[in-house]
């Protein structure tokens, strides 16, 4: 089950996240759980695989906004980086970022089980 402690241990800035949710723990946790079904992860992965940088940027940007607000730092950081690279359309090893993001996403998912 997802808990504040679990999130804290995961590396989330739960203090900021909670504040944004008016310190309503149930509300915060519900939103974090809801973020797990975000389809943008799959979209990002597929777009990068297809080398469609515009689509990849859109997906990354969408994720960045939500992750930032929920203060899920371990995910927010790599997503922010890939978003900025994609925005600038720089040559980079996007697959490595996607792997990292999916790994952190997997960790977050495990917290819920």
């Amino acid at each position: 089950m997802l808990t504040l402690d679990g999130l804290k241990a995961y590396g989330a800035d739960t203090k900021s996240g909670m504040e944004r949710c008016m310190n309503n723990e149930a509300f915060y946790l519900r939103l974090v759980e809801k973020s797990l079904s975000d389809t943008s992860y799959d979209k990002l992965k597929e777009a990068v695989a297809a080398n469609d940088l515009d689509a990849a940027f859109e997906a990354a940007h969408a994720l960045k906004g939500v992750l930032g607000n929920l203060a899920l730092t371990p995910l927010y950081e790599p997503v922010s980086k890939i978003t900025e690279l994609l925005r600038a359309k720089e040559q980079a090893d996007y697959n490595a970022y996607v792997d990292e993001i999916l790994a952190k996403f997997g960790e977050l998912k495990n917290l819920c089980n």
């Binding site: 944004r20 509300f27 969408a62 939500v66 607000n69």
Partner: peptide, 13 residues
């Protein structure tokens, strides 16, 4: 906002 979670956080505030 197209992101439901963002809408909810703002709405809650």
């Amino acid at each position: 906002d197209d992101e439901e979670i963002n809408r909810e956080i703002l709405g809650n505030i």
